[in-house]
Amino acid sequence: MTGYTAKKAGYAIEYIALIAVVLIVWCVMAGRGTLNEIIMPAPSKVLDTVTELIGSGVLWTNLVISVVRVLKGYFIAVVLGVSLGILIGLSKHAERLSVLIIQIIKPIPPIAWIPLVILWFGIGESGKVFLIFLGSFFNILINVHDGIKQADEKYIEVSKSMETPFFKHIFRLIIPGAAPNIFTGLRIGLSSGWMCVVAAELVSSTTGLGYMIMNARQFGQTDVVIVGMLTIGIIGKLMDSLLRAVEKRAIKWNWSE
């Protein structure tokens, strides 16, 4: 084995070491009967539940429903967040007009919106999508705004000295320069939107991963709760990796090879 591959193998071990320890401790404790089955089911029980939920299609159905909801809310958040972020980053008037309201609304957690959302949207799909939108929108908006505002004065001077036309200045200088921040916003926006899915599905839902978890809680099915939680975690991680890969391709000038 060469030094390089040995190093790689070492890294791989480090990546999974902590997860392995947690699993082993969990297995051992379950095996010795120290765990209360209701509070913390054994790993084997969770594994059985996974197989069962996959086999019956329940997990898949709920997962797809949740993902679609998140994507809908996220899509609206991306469109509005990016365009408004660019607008308030470019226009001092728009910035002054909006900054206070953004700062006040942003810290309100989506869950606090639920009563109003039920009144406004009823218990249908749109309310849930709106909550996810709220969860992602501000993160995208703020990062895009920052990126546009932090445009490097040095590059702006170069562009000025060439008498660059306005739209070219915006689309080929300001926006590409803000691309790293825009992508950060898109990534944080997606993960925060995904985190809102449980909150969104608390709104009288009968489907989705959030519903699956809350429903299982009422029947004391801790194993289903754990499966639901882990699914949310793993899908969230996959979504982030996917966006990172897109980012790496889109702004390859920012990555050294």
Binding site: Y155, K160, P176, I251
Partner: peptide, 20 residues
């Protein structure tokens, strides 16, 4: 009164746009 493209400027740092 303002920069014009008839005057080319080379800066201390190259100031190339990194994304191009």
């Amino acid at each position: 009164i303002k920069p014009e493209k008839t005057r080319g400027m080379v800066f201390q740092e190259h100031r190339l746009f990194p994304w191009l």
